[in-house]
Design a protein around this nucleic acid. Structure first.
Length: 619
DNA sequence: TCTATTAAACAAT
DNA sequence: ATTGTTTAATAGA
């Protein structure tokens, strides 16, 4: 506290009677003053930190590579560049950049493009003069609080589980989120649904509390089982080069089966989608409310994919997944214009490919683990999962697959430990949907949602979410993934989801489909599956189940929302049921998706097309 | 009205 | 205690 006072704040700042912000000098009011005084020079004016400031923010000309320079290169560009309002005054004590922008820069600067919260703090302290003094402040410090707040609030930031020791999650930039530059915030909290959402949330909270006290966790299982057994060396979260680790780890078994996994997923969940709704808000009823929920489901899905085990593939897959999850829009990116690469879900940035992969990889491992873990847990103890030991093995293969997705088949055959558990199958099935999403994304926001609906649809629903919340995020998530897959019991539900999926598939363009297939399939199908050119192997499998080619016209989707809720409840039941019984029995479940299937026929047929999506899409 | 900053309550680790 | 999430108040555009 004192320190801050000490800061070289201009006299101007101080006296603004500010109730809350203790942390800094008051910017705003001052700003005007500052502005007046020194426009550009504002820096000096702000004066906060004497010298250092100069270097940092205001001027692009800044020699310091660290901060700005790098950032500019990346996505930030948009952000940083745009930021500068008229240039005159600095909005904040540290400059015109918002917390979100600063954070983005920090992340971008990092080699891996991901940082932990602590690292972000650190970066701030080092880089931004204003914070320099505040380095030692506690987490309670206002600025740290603000950073955390921003991380959570903005879709542009993705949280990825950090496997290493007890480290906090990695924070990454959501390719999409940042793309526009505007990174929408999550949602206006208040506003439309507010009442509804709020209530639900409120409940959730309360519930949690109570539950927590009471011990709802039971279902969740044992709470924390342990940490990561880690080991792997995961420790070195060091930003520097963990590449090796990533790959390795991913495959590595490190974590084996700890319950923790679920969390992993949780971490993924992007709060993303909601944004869309935020902006438009109106249209999709779904959007708003549901989206949120959807997020969770997504995780589940991801888990599914990851389950596959393959690292490399995962990498890309993850990419997609992340994207999907986040913005759901790798594809979109291009449109937005932000991301140059249209086709490939590849990283938005030109960054070194290696790094690109790796970084994401980090997250992957976790996925897998989760999946595998879950599988083992749920389905069975054995956990031979993937050639466990061979973790290293798989990677290599995957690597190939990545590069040459098509070729995939042969390699896949190699590993195929084939997992017994139905989960995989489920997962597989899931995979398709995402792709769909991709396509869907044609539309900026809405579409994505549509895709989600398909995926999450079954899952999503406020209620569901709540319930999930109650239980435990992680678990729920997994459940969710399964949900969609569910076999016989509730075909209805499953159908819904499938149908959605199919539609999505249809939409996909050939190329995309292929790609997708690769990503998804390989991971999942590895067993031996051959990647069917059509891609969809997974889908087909699904198709077998329920297979209603096209369930409903896109338009229906809206209504679907409603339905979804309906389902939700049912789903819940199912989930548990499934978990308990089906999953346990792995064998029973028949999700076989014959990889073979491919025909393309099914999916092909019903081409729904985005056009439809457009319809419901706002604009 | 929207965005951003700041605070603060809470949950989970 | 840290990390994350969320709500709310406030201020600027």
């Amino acid at each position: 506290m004192e320190e801050e006072n000490v800061l070289p704040i201009d006299p101007d700042f101080e006296p603004q009677s500010r109730p809350r912000s203790c942390t800094w000098p008051l910017p705003r009011p001052d700003i005007s003053a500052v502005k007046t005084g020194g426009t550009d020079g504002s820096e000096s004016a702000a004066g906060t930190p004497p010298t250092e400031e100069d270097k940092h923010d205001p001027q692009p000309s800044t020699p310091e590579p660290d901060k700005v320079a790098v950032s500019e290169g990346g996505v930030l560009t948009g952000v940083g560049g745009a930021t500068p309002r008229k240039g005159t005054s600095r909005r904040n004590a540290w400059g015109n950049q918002s917390y979100a922008e600063l954070i983005s820069q920090a992340i971008e600067n990092s080699p891996e493009k991901r940082l932990t919260l602590a690292q972000i703090y650190d970066w701030m302290v080092k880089t931004v003069p204003y914070f320099k003094d505040k380095g030692d402040s506690n987490s309670s410090a206002g600025w740290k609080n603000s950073i955390r707040h921003n991380l959570s609030l903005h879709n542009k930031f993705l949280r990825v589980h950090n496997e290493s020791t007890g480290k906090s999650s990695w924070w990454m930039l959501n390719p999409e989120g940042g793309k526009t530059g505007k990174a929408p915030r999550r949602r206006a909290a208040s506003m439309d649904n507010s009442s509804k959402l709020l209530k639900s949330r409120m409940r959730a909270k309360q519930t949690k509390k109570q539950a927590g006290a009471s011990g709802i966790g039971g279902s969740a299982g044992a709470m924390q089982g342990e940490g990561v057994s880690g080991t792997n060396g995961a420790d070195s979260p060091g930003p520097q080069s963990q590449f090796g680790k990533w790959g390795v780890n991913s495959s590595s078994p490190s974590s084996r089966g700890s319950l923790d996994d679920p969390d992993m997923w949780t971490s993924f969940r992007p709060r993303t989608s909601s944004n869309a709704s935020t902006l438009s808000g109106r249209l999709s009823p779904i959007a708003t409310g549901q989206e949120d929920e959807e997020e969770l489901p997504e995780d589940g899905l991801l888990g599914g994919y990851s389950t596959g085990n393959h690292p490399p593939i995962l990498t890309e897959t993850l990419m997609e997944e992340l994207d999907l999850i986040d913005g759901l829009t790798l594809m979109t990116g291009p449109q937005g214009g932000a991301s140059p690469s249209t086709a490939p879900p590849a990283p938005p940035q030109p960054l070194p490919s290696a790094s690109t992969l790796l970084p994401r990889g980090s997250s992957f491992p976790s996925f897998r683990q989760l999946a595998s873990t879950k599988a083992s847990q749920g389905s069975t103890p054995p956990g031979p999962q993937n050639t466990s030991g061979g973790s290293s093995t798989s990677p290599s293969n995957f690597g190939n697959s990545l590069f040459s997705p098509l070729s995939g088949p042969g390699s896949h055959g190699g590993f195929s430990p084939h997992v017994p558990s139905s989960l995989e199958a489920l997962l597989t099935s899931d995979s398709p949907p995402p792709s769909e999403v991709m396509m869907t994304q044609m539309d900026p926001l809405m579409p994505s949602q549509g895709g989600l609906l398909g995926l999450g649809g079954s899952l999503s629903s406020n209620q569901t979410k709540q319930s999930q919340m109650m239980l435990s995020k992680s678990i729920d998530t997994s459940a969710v993934g399964q949900m969609s897959l569910q076999p016989q019991p509730q075909l209805q539900h499953s159908q819904m989801s499938f149908s959605m999926m199919h539609s999505g598939m249809n939409q996909e363009p050939p190329q995309l489909a292929t790609v997708k297939t690769q990503h998804h399939v390989p991971g999942l199908l590895q067993h031996g599956a051959v990647p069917s050119p059509g891609g969809n192997g997974g889908l087909q499998g699904l198709g077998q189940f329920s297979t209603p080619p096209c369930f409903m016209p896109p338009q229906d989707r809206l209504p679907t929302d409603l339905d979804i809720e309906m389902f939700t409840e049912n789903l819940d039941c199912d989930v548990e049921y499934i978990i308990n019984s089906d999953l346990m029995d792995g064998d029973l479940v028949d999700f076989n998706f014959d990889p073979i299937i491919q025909g393309g026929q099914g999916y092909t047929g019903p081409a729904t097309t985005q056009s439809s999506s457009h319809n419901w899409v706002p604009s």
